[in-house]
Design a protein around this nucleic acid. Structure first.
Length: 452
RNA sequence: GGCCCCAUCGUCUAACGGCUAGGACAGCGCCCUUUCACGGCGUAAAUCGGGGUUCGAUUCCCCGUGGGGUCACCA
């Protein structure tokens, strides 16, 4: 066990969420910044669960913190604490403060009606100023804070007391937290001075805002971190995006891995103003990561988001899914988009014969059944001559294009494409034919012919 | 309202006090193209206002305006 003096030699940050709601996007970024700063300085990050409010703290919220951090790859150096398990420690400090006269028992009715006294801090009514790493000097006159309550009773510490005692006992050197913590700082510095704790360095990071610049909340859609996972965003993209909210590397690169971030992150350069959460940019970043994914990993993810009716289709297999990957990549930004594609009916035809009206086969309504049938028959004839092993996109195109140019590209390529997809919009007919292979392509062409 | 923080394109942001204020996302246009998507090229778009300091302010100072945070026996 290290003592405090040894600990002080290295950077110790802490991420201290309270489990009174699901870990949200803002909390995740605070955790990330603490992690990045600790790692780049060879230090450690402590995870501390601030559950002094027994009423509002919930196990499932606590779990969302662990699960969220681990999903993002934010590791907390094996320490973690729950404040609810440390009451004896707080009690010792409270007693010492009362003894020294920096706190006192105040006879008054408790708000819960069960108590007749609370513990108040004896306000020295001075001026407090501190140097914020991001914002520079911040000054407060603490007299207006009054003798604030630090504990409901000797065994029930409140937030400020618990925070200061823990940061002290854990040897925290740097407190990186949201901008909303600025106004808590003077109170906490006061308590530090009362218990003889050294003052850590502070860095208050800007808040994440909704598009209307108000505080981001549930009514603005997804804010819970794990919700993003469930919508098919990938963790490195979230990390990348979060890091770019309030910070930017020296060069103009936008795609940065966790280790890039550890190397390049700079706390003093973090932006001071609040940052609006931009879903479009997140989606763009996520897509960049999807493109960089290996085939195996991509398919694993894609499979999880594939609706049952698609997975049950006769032609569905891991092999066809892998073949579909490039086509999918052109159309999705998150894996959740797969569901939307499926809902719009733009997925099932890859795995089973589509149903469609024969009118869909007519190019801009100008074709008549006889001429379209003739074209389809001619196409089948040409495709039939291609050896199955040569049935690739380029080869097919080469064979068909002269004919299409002679008859009019739309009049040939549109019905061919519809015969394969059944839809007014889809990938081009060469891509589709190559995807389906010779047999299935000829089969679908025959089905279309019969329809006419 | 008191106290505190903040202010560059619509959004995220770059710019030792010194180039035509740069990039990305979104937008728009063109190209590619049978359609959709992808892609390529291009384009529009910002220093909140007013005073200082300075040879010169996006940058430093003051005032105003606007936005945000916080004012619990919540954290």
């Amino acid at each position: 066990m290290e003592n405090i003096a040894q600990k002080q030699q290295k950077v110790i940050t802490r991420f201290a969420p309270s489990p009174t709601g699901f870990l949200h996007i803002g909390g995740a970024r605070t955790g990330l910044f603490n992690y990045l700063f600790a790692k780049q300085n060879g230090g450690i990050m402590i995870l501390r669960i601030e559950d002094t409010d027994r009423e509002r703290s919930k196990k499932e919220y606590e779990n969302s913190i662990f699960e969220g951090l681990s999903w993002l790859g934010i590791k907390y150096d094996e320490f973690y604490y729950r404040q609810s398990e440390r009451t004896a420690l707080y009690q010792r400090h409270i007693e010492k403060m009362i003894e020294k006269g920096t706190a006192y028992i105040s006879k008054e009715d408790g708000r819960d009606g069960k108590r007749s006294e609370v513990i108040r801090f004896k306000n020295p009514k001075t001026k407090i100023s501190f140097e914020d790493i991001i914002r520079g000097k911040i000054e407060f006159d603490v007299s207006e804070l009054g003798d604030f309550v630090i504990a409901k009773d000797i065994e029930s510490p409140l937030y400020h007391l618990a925070v200061v005692v823990d940061d002290f006992e854990m040897g925290v050197t740097h407190i990186i937290r949201g901008e909303d913590g600025i106004s808590n700082t003077p109170r906490q510095i006061l308590i530090q001075e009362a218990i003889g704790a050294p003052r850590p360095r502070y860095a208050h990071i800007p808040l994440i805002l909704a598009p209307d610049r108000s505080k981001l909340s549930k009514r603005h859609g997804a804010v819970s971190l794990l919700e993003f996972r469930d919508k098919g965003f990938v963790a490195p993209a979230i990390v990348n995006f979060l890091a770019l909210l309030g910070w930017h590397p020296k060069d103009e690169s936008e795609i940065l891995s966790m280790s890039d971030l550890i190397a390049q992150f700079s706390l003093p350069d973090v932006q001071k103003g609040g940052a609006v959460f931009n879903m479009d940019k997140l989606r763009w970043i996520n897509r960049e990561y999807l493109e960089r994914m290996s085939e195996v990993v991509f398919s694993e993810h894609a499979e999880r988001f594939m609706p049952e009716d698609i997975k049950n289709a006769e032609g569905y297999s891991l092999k066809t899914l892998n073949k579909l990957r490039p086509l999918l990549l052109e159309r999705i930004s998150t894996f959740g988009d797969i569901r939307e594609l499926a809902e719009r009916g733009e997925l099932l035809y890859f795995f089973s014969q589509p149903l469609y009206e024969k009118e869909t086969l007519f190019w801009k309504g100008e074709g008549n059944p006889d001429s379209v049938r003739e074209i389809l028959r001619a196409l089948s004839g040409m495709l039939d001559k291609i050896p199955p092993e040569e049935f690739g996109e380029e080869y097919i195109k080469q064979k068909i294009f002269p004919f299409a140019e002679e008859k009019g590209k739309g009049s040939v390529l549109w019905p061919m494409r519809v015969a394969l997809s059944g839809l007014p919009k889809s990938p081009d007919p060469f891509t589709l034919a190559a995807f389906f292979g010779k047999d299935e392509t000829l089969r679908r062409l025959a089905v279309a012919e019969k329809k006419l």
